[in-house]
């Protein structure tokens, strides 16, 4: 790319922040592994940051400190430039792990080490491999029982395989920016604006519930006073495009729509 992908803007947030937010939909604990001295964009307070102590060792180099920091038995490793991670796809890979040490997606015959679930107990083994200079992820697969998930299988959870999209080139980044959506503008009024700390944000949402959920993820101060579990609380109203007041979270939204959030107390 020629620049740090973690800080690339993506519709009002950075690629890294977006990846953290999307992964957080599927898991409780998110660890960000940064290069030594890497400057990171602002992140949700729920994300923990650890540092890889040596540069340029490839995916296994970042995997080791990440697995050590994880609080779980198994952890998903994804790249920060994955703008379309889908929670169903993440759940799918976790579900396929079974008794294996690694569950890894294989696309066009090539394993994707940064769309794979690893046992956290693998950290010492990975450290050994790094010390031996065996940096390629495939060497790990040679050593441990693993499950290979063909990308075609993954379509059951992510029909367009958008979870596997990365922004490795400027063209891929521009393409991802253009391909995302539908984009919806969430506008905040009265107390909702005070809580949000902003007048509006752009969110990627196909339904009202999606828009509310993403707004809550991006602006945690809206939770739990305004939005809880993807729904507005009773003292709030949602309006589409300044026209209809709505409350059905399954309501489809058109790209370019505006969702207005405001107090239910209209009078005065």
């Amino acid at each position: 790319m020629g620049r740090d992908k973690a800080t690339l803007p993506f519709h009002g947030e950075t690629l890294l922040k977006r990846a953290v937010r999307l992964v957080r939909r599927a898991v409780d604990d998110v660890v960000v592994v940064a290069r030594p001295g890497q400057s990171l964009p602002s992140l949700p307070s729920s994300a923990r940051v650890v540092r890889d102590d040596v540069e340029d060792r490839g995916p296994l180099g970042g995997l080791s400190p990440g697995l050590r920091a994880s609080k779980a038995d198994a952890a998903l490793a994804v790249a920060c430039d994955s703008p379309f991670l889908h929670e169903a796809a993440i759940d799918f890979v976790f579900a396929r792990l079974g008794d294996a040490e690694v569950a890894i997606v294989v696309e066009d015959g090539r394993p994707c080490p940064l769309f794979a679930v690893y046992r956290t107990s693998l950290a010492p083994r990975i450290d050994r491999m790094l010390a031996e200079g065996r940096l390629r992820p495939v060497f790990l697969l040679d050593e441990v029982p693993h499950v290979r998930i063909d990308a075609e299988e993954l379509r059951a959870a992510d029909c367009d395989l958008r979870s596997l999209v990365n922004c490795n080139t400027p063209e891929a980044y521009e393409s991802a920016l253009a391909a995302s959506g539908p984009w919806v503008r969430v506008e905040f009024y009265d107390v909702a604006r005070l809580r949000a700390g902003t007048a509006a944000i752009e969110v990627e949402a196909a339904t009202l519930g999606d828009a509310l959920r993403e707004a809550a993820e991006r602006l945690p101060a809206l939770v739990p006073d305004v939005i809880r579990d993807g729904r507005l609380l009773e003292h709030w109203r949602a309006n589409i495009d300044g026209e209809r007041f709505v409350d059905d979270p399954e309501l489809p939204l058109r790209s370019g729509s505006a969702v207005l959030l405001l107090s239910a107390q209209a009078g005065g």
Binding site: E187, Y189, D190, V191, L194, H235, S263, Q265, G267, G268
Partner: peptide, 23 residues
């Protein structure tokens, strides 16, 4: 509680931008 938050925190003048957006 939240049922009066608008009046406490902003006041009825909060209506202005809301009503403007709603035509």
């Amino acid at each position: 509680g939240p049922g009066t938050a608008k009046y406490r925190e902003v006041g009825t003048i909060a209506n202005l931008l809301v009503f403007n957006r709603l035509n």
